[in-house]
């Protein structure tokens, strides 16, 4: 029995990765997460320039999850070289990037490749430069342009991380596939808001934020199931995974691997070890020898 899996060309010893934005800002923290049993770590989404993000409050707990509007704080691609050097020495690192347009995405992806990233993950949930609060990843044509530009700039696999805040996530997945993308990652956070009745106003400084944690799991599983029926490229599932049982939902919906974000708050870095043990127990009990035997079986 083995927990090995692959996302296209990328071979992973363990199927769980650290999701972008979770302990992925510094080299030492990424190295620690890999040592804790994660199969890979996705970096914080990195942009062209250093960014402080939105002022606090930018994060809050709700009953079944979290709502955050960090505002993509990051040290910028130039300085991130120092962090990547440390992280890459520890294991597979997926470089997440966000840009204002296709050219910027391509430039950033190229730098991640130079730094030794095993693959690049495009954060398509960042705001559309043209405004209206729309996310880049809601427009299939725009997504295609970005993926084509990045594919032309790097040799490492290109993963597109999809936003659930769109009419049809499957259409966006198809656009990624048509543009030559190597995998889709689903889902990013759901647009959300928390109001404080005591203070009579939204809690987050940005007013809106993104919902994550157990509250989004059923939405994520459904998105992966939909994508599995529409695209042929591998799918990485993310959203509300806290234990092996949650991870298995994503795998059986069609994910070749999964990512864990919010669960690191309560479970700590050890959450990966726990999930790995739980997967082995399940596979033992139900007679599976490999992750690949379970991928997408719920669609049959």
């Amino acid at each position: 029995m083995t927990l090995e899996t692959s996302v296209g060309r990328i071979e992973l010893e363990r199927p769980g990765m650290v999701a972008s934005g979770i302990m992925g800002e510094t080299g030492p923290s990424m190295a620690r997460m890999i040592a804790s049993g994660a199969g890979a770590v996705v970096t914080k989404s990195i942009g062209a320039e250093p960014k402080a993000g939105y002022p606090n409050p930018c994060f809050t707990e709700i009953k079944s999850g979290y709502v955050n509007a960090m505002g993509l704080p990051n040290p910028g691609i130039e300085l991130f070289a120092d962090e990547m050097r440390i992280a890459v020495a520890a294991g597979p690192v997926i470089g997440s990037v966000y840009g204002a347009d296709a050219d910027e995405f391509a430039m950033l992806a190229g730098r991640m490749e130079d730094y030794g990233a095993a693959a690049v993950e495009l954060n398509l949930s960042c705001p559309h430069a043209k405004g209206y609060g729309m996310e880049l990843g809601t427009d299939p044509e725009g997504v295609k342009q970005i993926v084509v530009a990045v594919k032309g700039a790097v040799d490492i696999p290109v993963w597109a991380k999809l936003t659930p805040n769109t009419r049809s996530i499957a259409d966006i997945g198809l656009a990624v596939q048509e543009a030559g993308g190597d995998a889709v990652v689903a889902i990013n956070t759901l647009k959300a808001m928390v109001i404080s009745p005591e203070m009579r106003k939204p809690v987050l400084s940005n007013k809106f934020g993104g919902l994550s944690g157990p509250a989004v799991r059923a939405v994520g599983v459904r998105a992966v199931y939909d994508l599995y029926t529409t695209v042929d490229i591998p799918i990485v599932g993310v959203g509300g995974v806290t234990d092996a049982h949650d991870a298995l939902q994503y795998i059986m919906a069609g994910a070749a691997a999964f990512q864990v974000g919010s669960a690191v708050a309560k479970g700590g870095p050890d959450v990966f070890d726990e999930i790995n043990k739980g997967l082995e127990r399940f596979m033992m009990d139900y007679g599976y020898k490999s992750i690949s035997e379970m991928i997408g079986v719920a669609n049959e």
């Binding site: 979770i22 302990m23 992925g24 030492p28 707990e61 700590g268």
Partner: peptide
């Protein structure tokens, strides 16, 4: 410097330790 305070965002690192958690 702390943002989430809950051990998620990784902004409060000193070496590989989260100061908040």
């Amino acid at each position: 410097h702390m943002k989430c305070g809950a051990g998620l965002c990784g902004c409060c690192m000193i070496d590989d330790q989260r100061v908040c958690k």
